[in-house]
Structures are given as structure tokens and as C-alpha cells.
Design a protein around this nucleic acid. Sequence first.
RNA 1: GUGGAUGUAGCUCAGUUGGUUAGAGCGUCAGGUUGUGGCCCUGAAGGCCGUGGGUUCGAGACCCAUCAUCCACCCCA
Length: 418
Amino acid sequence: MIQRPRGTFDILPEEMPYWYKIEETAREVSALYGFSEIRIPTFEATELFARGVGDTTDVVQKEMYTFTDREGRSLTLRPEGTAGVARALIENGKCSDAMPLKLFYIINCFRYEKPQAGRSREFYQYGVELFGSDSPAADATVIALANAVISRLGITGTELQVNSIGCPSCRPEYHKKLREFFAANEEKLCPTCRERLKTNPLRILDCKNEDCIKLCEGAPKVLDSLCSPCAGHFETLKKYLDASGIAYTVNPKIVRGLDYYTRTVFEFISDKIGAQSTICGGGRYDGLIKQIGGPELPGIGFAMGITRLILAMKACGSEVEEPMAPSLYIAPLGERAQLYALKLSAGLKEAGIYSECDIVGRSLKSQMKYADKIGAKYTLILGDAEIDTGRAILKNMQTGEQSEVGVSDIDALRRLLS
RNA sequence: GUGGAUGUAGCUCAGUUGGUUAGAGCGUCAGGUUGUGGCCCUGAAGGCCGUGGGUUCGAGACCCAUCAUCCACCCCA
């Protein structure tokens, strides 16, 4: 038995209603907000992610599926969508289009991580990117879109957390202050945080270690260290969110692990799906396009983990479409009837009626059982006598009622069934 | 990458202090007299007991390794 690779999963037919609902909702709401779909390659030049996502990040350092192709080029299975979308815009000259550019995508991504509830090595995300506006109104729009999708999916009890992590002009200053603060208290930090002190001191604020949490209480706050444009941006965003009636809490501890984020960062958190509780994560990335070789072009976006959405939908008892049940099951008896049944079934399908017909050669009793199991609304019993007379028995599977109907007129049959 | 728990039929699980041919329920398939489903009854198929070593006269049970799954850390969607 050859098993699927670790961290991958099969999406079985019985799960599809959830996927359909999410994909339909994502497309519908995106369209309402004026976002168009884009599809990008599954793999890209490794350098795109190294430069875009940032080569000090965990994602790039230890989680990428990188390989060399037959010509010796280094390629990487996309670990996220934003860098690829940004690349596609630059490469296709879209940066000169009318602004803002509003795009969404539904893709699979790959990260070499240890699997856990809500975390797999191949995962799916619905993401949205808005380029060409540095106004907090863009931030508010994107957050409103995320909020609308989540609520339309019937997911309740989520919390929106927002924060600002500053920009290239004020963040270094804050980093310096943080570093100084923690360096003075280094012996109180946990081992991983001592490591973070060198790599990314912002992350220390998010540590779950008790001693670190205590120490963080006295640490300089990001929001106090923002430059005035960043502070203004954040204040205005909050005002817009308030005006839109979108509830949020400010969490100065949220820090995104991707280097391209600037200013606004946000997460929608669910308390119902285990430790991987971020259902949607996003933020502003004003430097990204420039960073990967395009013009100066601000942007903001988010991504939602589809399997996490499904976990949350199930936890919330969100309703999804039932699988289609056939309107009619045709039970042929014998060779002649089989032939006739296939023809009849095809005719009904042409008329837009979902009908099933035995193709296994079962006994009538077994066929009845099967018709019941698949939820057929009616069953038509077809033997030699019926073909000769052109009239057969139609059984209503709910009431058990039987009546004789003509089988040569498909239109008449269709009317009977609907 | 670190830690904890768990691997017996398609699914959910039993399996006594190690002891003959490995069990149940659900599901699947077939029957329960002529061409009629749901309930009920009968029967069948389906397991190298995750894999590889070891201990033992004897291992599904014990030991070691390995793989996988789940949970948490980490990270993130």
C-alpha cells in the first residue's frame, strides 16, 4: 500500500459541500467588492519568495519545498500567494493599469511543517490583494470583505484583532528600543526568545512562556513607537472600522511572520478549532512590489485557510448543500428493458432531470433497496410487458404510492416528476 | 525541529494475568418462493492485529526501532 505523503490529505466527495460553499461565497463576495480572480503558477523561482517573503523568515528558511529542475534552476512550490500575485502584476504590466488593482485567488500552498489540526503540508487558501492605495480606507475595505465572507459562511464567535507594526522609517527605531530592553533582561528570557532577540525581537512579544509574558509587560509598545504617519494611518483605520460597525480589538502582540508586512496587520481568530486558531490573517505590504523589482506600489491583503474555515463551519453547525438525489430511479428487468432504460434515462437528462438507472444487473429487490439508499424520489419499474404496452409503474418512494404512467412521452414524465 | 498520546475489518471499537482456527456493531454484497425499498431475520465477502526486529515453547498483547495519525510547542492560513 502506497500512502499519501505526510501532511497531505484527500478531499472526499462527502466533504465537497463545504468546499463548494466556501469557494462560491468567496467568489460572490469578492465580486461584490470588485475583486477579480487571478490564477498563478504552483511553483515560482525560489528567489521570488526569498526576496518577497523574506529570507530570515521561518517560511523561507525551513519550510519551503525547493527543488532544482532539469536545467539547474532553483524552483519552489509556493508557500503563500501574495508574492506570486505581485510578480504576476509586474510581469504583465498591470502596475500601470487604473488603480486600485483588486484581485483574489483560491490556491493550494505548500509548507514543510509538522502536521497538526488545521495545519498540513499542502493547504488551501482563499486570498485577496488590493494594490495601489495607501489609504486606511483600503485596509478597511479589505477587512470588511474578510468579515463578510466569514459571516456568510455561518462562522460565529470569531474575533478580529488589529495592530500596526510600523513602516521602514519607524520600525528600526522600535526594533532598537526593543532589543535594548530585552538585552538588558536577557537572562529572564526563554531559550527560543534569546534566539529571537537576534533574529526578530518583535516575536518575543508573542511568546507564551510565563516569564517572557511578564517581562513583556514592561517592554516598549509598538503603538507608542509609531511614526506620526503610521500612527495616523492606524487611528484612521480604527475610525473607519468603527464607522463600518466592524468589531475589533487592538492586540499589540500580533506580529506577522512574513517580512513584507508594514503598518496594518490583522487576524480573525476562532476559539473553536484548536491551537491553529487563525482563520484569516493579513496586513499591509507597501514595500513588496518594489522589493521584487516593480514600481513603488502599496498593497494590502489577507488569506484565509480553507480547511480552518471548514473546521470552524463544522464547529458552528453551518449549513451546506445536501448532495443531489435523483428525481427518478429506473429499474429495468432484463436485456430489452436495460436498453430501453438507458435510452429513457438519457432522454430525461437531456430534459434536465437527474435520473439513475441500474447498470449493475441487480434483482428488482436489490434495485429498490439501492433506489431507497440513494434517496431517489420516484422509481420506475420497467419490464418486457411495460415496453410492449408503453405504460409502466411509477412508485413514489416517500409515500409508497404507485401509479401507471406512459413512458414514451418524456415531457409528460418530466411534468409528473417535478 | 521539540514534547505527549495512539495505531486490531471500509468506519467505530472489543480482545481477560501472553495460550488453539482474531470478535462485535455499523457499512458493503446476496438471500428471506412469482416483478417492489425503509423495519426485521439469515448468510457471505472483508484483517501479514501499522512495519521491522527482539524476548518466549507460544506475542494482537511484553521490549526496542521505525513509519503514520492525533494533540501541544514553534510557526502560520
